[in-house]
């Protein structure tokens, strides 16, 4: 009953809940159902601590759900169908920028000459060519973030998981990267799950926006973004853009207040 035979969904999240058991038990996600089609660009919006990163971690098979199940339909033949851009970059300090970007390709078993070619192409795209031989501690936060993006994109994954990938970039660079990503994605539509705190960014990039509640996170609403593809950044000036932005913000505001006002109780 899920979908038609012609297009099975890429990702199905069915009744997934997640608790973390450390010093105390934290209910990160309550019960999440989400279906993502092949080639869809889905944005996750929600207050801090609502479990957005947790969803991505489970999709990357780093954590397992406490309840429910996740089905990922892959084409097969890869070490892993996903590549992730981490919120805290997670670039390896002991590898040069170049080695960091090549890491994913090495793991995927891409032959050396091609891995080198792709590494340099992505370094160039991210404006990092001059720093290829540097070690990460000598780079700014925004530059390290770009290394992390290059590392993930270079592997050309079936599913791209991006956890606030542009958060550390300055406003100008952020815009350029958004436009770059928009174009890249439109060239070869991959499935993308994109976490952001910016409603504007979500509308600009996403096919669909999923709004989550404060912790324990659940899905409160989904918005289909009405703008046609290929999209250009000019849609920012469209009146419908502002309208949708307002609509989503009205929904989010209470949750954000709840997340902060709660101060950790319950």
């Amino acid at each position: 009953m899920h979908g038609t035979a012609s297009s099975a969904p890429k990702i199905e999240i069915r009744g997934v809940a997640k608790q973390y058991h450390s010093a105390r038990t934290v209910q990160a996600l309550s019960k999440v159902d989400l279906t993502i089609a092949d080639g869809e660009f889905v944005c996750l919006l929600g207050p801090s601590g609502c479990g957005k990163s947790t969803i991505l971690r489970m999709l990357a098979r780093l954590h397992k759900p406490s309840d429910g199940e996740i089905i990922i339909n892959t084409a097969g033949g890869r070490v892993t169908p996903t590549a992730m851009v981490f919120q805290d970059y997670a670039v390896f300090p002991w590898k040069t920028i170049e080695q960091n970007v090549r890491f994913g390709l090495e793991m995927a078993g891409v032959p050396m000459p091609e891995a080198n070619e792709r590494t340099h192409r992505w370094l160039k795209k991210m404006g990092l060519s001059d720093f290829a031989k540097n070690y990460p501690p000598t780079l700014s936060g925004g530059m390290q973030q770009r290394v992390s993006i290059a590392r993930a994109l270079a592997t050309e994954p079936e599913i791209l998981l991006m956890d606030e990938p542009f958060a550390a970039l300055d406003a100008q660079h952020r815009r350029i990267m958004q436009e770059e990503l928009l174009q890249l994605w439109q060239e070869d539509r991959r499935t993308v799950v994109f976490v952001t705190h910016s409603i504007e960014e979500a509308i600009l990039l996403g096919d669909r926006i999923v709004v989550m509640s404060a912790r324990p996170g659940r899905i409160m609403a989904e918005f289909n973004v009405p703008f046609a593809r290929p999209r250009s950044p000019e849609i920012r000036t469209d009146p419908h853009f502002a309208q949708l932005e307002q609509e989503i913000w009205n929904m989010l505001r209470d949750e954000v207040e709840r997340a902060y006002g709660e101060g950790g109780h319950k």
Partner: peptide, 12 residues
């Protein structure tokens, strides 16, 4: 943990 997770996410 973040380095181990990053490596694992790429299949290491």
């Amino acid at each position: 943990e973040t380095y181990k997770e990053a490596a694992r996410s790429f299949g290491a």
